[in-house]
Design a protein around this nucleic acid. Structure first.
Lengths: 124, 124
DNA sequence: ATTATAGTTTAGTTTTATCTAAATTAATTC
DNA sequence: GAATTAATTTAGATAAAACTAAACTATAAT
């Protein structure tokens, strides 16, 4: 099978590969994904989902007001198998458990912006 | 075999994966690598080589004033096999040929900075 | 029709990565 | 030991990626 060079770049982002992991063998609504990663805004998740979709790594199904995402494993090809093994490895599970613990203690300090000044308000 | 999650991130950069390709099955001095990629400075190449070395994807051998780099295929693991097949594919060779042609016509316009103001001069 | 919910898009900000130029280090040659 | 060559390191600049807040779109519920 041919490997799209773009796929690796898309998967290199921890955020995106984490999203892909979430929808790897089940369908999740955009909101479900956001609830699983509450350290970023819904908008940010939506943008990453768009990138994944543009790379052909996920597909969408609209139902009522929800949009359900699921991985397209075919696109990931051999890389997908590597990821699968990675995610099922003991070390990876340990990492996930640690992050879950960390998450319980409150929002992550790392990435959040401290002062978010007021901005543009289009239609007052 | 265990896959280091950092490896994928390192390889996601086209610049670094190109360097890795160059030293995949032969040793090259840092300067050789730079001559093969004259669109960036020697310093930039050196920095990328450092990242590759830190990820364990290349090893160095010092001889006289040269430093010879070569890939450590073991670290790349299965990803390495994917890369190998990618590089040997017809499409990839076509891409390389196109870039070589482009390179002959002069320096790439894409990334270069237009105005590089004067800066810090430590010991005048 | 209004309100609420789910999600996307937009525009600007922040963060991170990559790059350049100069300084620096070290070995080699003269 | 001065000059040259090969490479690394440093400090700042620039570009790219990721993110935020708000605006916007669409469907569903009241």
């Amino acid at each position: 099978m041919m490997i799209d060079p773009g796929v690796m770049a898309v998967l290199a982002s921890p955020r995106r590969s984490e999203i892909l992991r979430l929808v790897w063998d089940r369908e999740l609504a955009a909101g479900d994904i956001h609830r699983a990663m509450p350290d970023v805004t819904f908008g940010a998740i939506s943008l990453q989902l768009r990138q994944l979709a543009e790379a052909g790594l996920v597909e969408v199904r609209a139902e009522s007001r929800n949009r359900y995402y699921r991985a397209r494993k075919e696109t990931a090809g051999e890389l997908g198998q590597i990821l699968e093994r990675m995610w099922s490895s003991a070390l990876w599970r340990l990492k996930l458990a640690a992050e879950l613990e960390e998450g319980r203690r409150g929002p992550r300090p790392g990435r959040r912006t401290t002062n978010s000044r007021q901005r543009r308000r289009k239609k007052p």
